[in-house]
């Protein structure tokens, strides 16, 4: 699988640059404008990242994750999910910055290219901050009763969590 994925990034970049030239876009102007937006959004995310990375590193240092992982181990073995990534799965729908902070801690503890690191990456990358999206979108039009949105979206998130585990088993 790694054989294909090394072509993806260069191909995407080459395609964008060629297509942009063909459409007579000011390539470098567009690039720097976009990169500037990237800096701004990173800076605006920084305060919450600082708060949450600190909280996650406190949990890690207190031994909480080791205790929780040990406690979850029997359940996780039964359902086939690595116990180390389950806390991330629970955090993902609630907070984006929180789950990125947690992913960072998992990647550093177990290694980004380990099975646990890969599973955690896929888990964080293939689902959204469900509660946040529901609150923002329905809140914007004054809807409070969201009918079956939460159960439907959360069931999909759980399916996504299992699929993340299987995808790493499948593609390596």
């Amino acid at each position: 699988m790694n054989g294909i994925s090394i072509y993806i990034i260069p191909s995407v970049i080459v395609f964008i640059v060629i297509y942009g030239t063909f459409k007579k876009v000011d390539l470098f102007g567009a690039f720097t404008d976009g990169a500037k937006e990237g800096i701004y959004s990173l800076i605006s995310a920084a305060p919450s990242l600082i708060g949450l990375v600190t909280a996650v590193s406190m949990l890690e240092a207190s031994g909480f994750f080791d205790l929780l992982t040990g406690f979850l181990q029997p359940v996780c073995t039964t359902i086939g999910i690595p116990a180390e990534v389950l806390p991330l799965g629970l955090m993902r729908p609630v907070t984006g910055s929180g789950s990125f902070a947690m992913l960072n801690s998992i990647l550093e503890k177990y290694g980004a290219d380990s099975i646990i690191g890969k599973t955690a990456s896929v888990m964080a990358g293939s689902t959204e901050t469900t509660f946040y999206a529901i609150t923002v979108y329905f809140g914007s039009v004054g809807i409070k009763n969201t009918r079956f949105t939460i159960p439907a979206a959360l069931t999909a998130d759980i399916v996504g969590m299992f699929l993340a585990v299987y995808s790493v088993r499948l593609f390596g």
Binding site: I13, I16, Y19, F31, G34, A35, E37
Partner: peptide, 16 residues
Amino acid sequence: MCLWTGMMKIADRSGI
């Protein structure tokens, strides 16, 4: 992060 927001801005302005 900035590399990709930059690349995707080119894509956006190309009409993709």
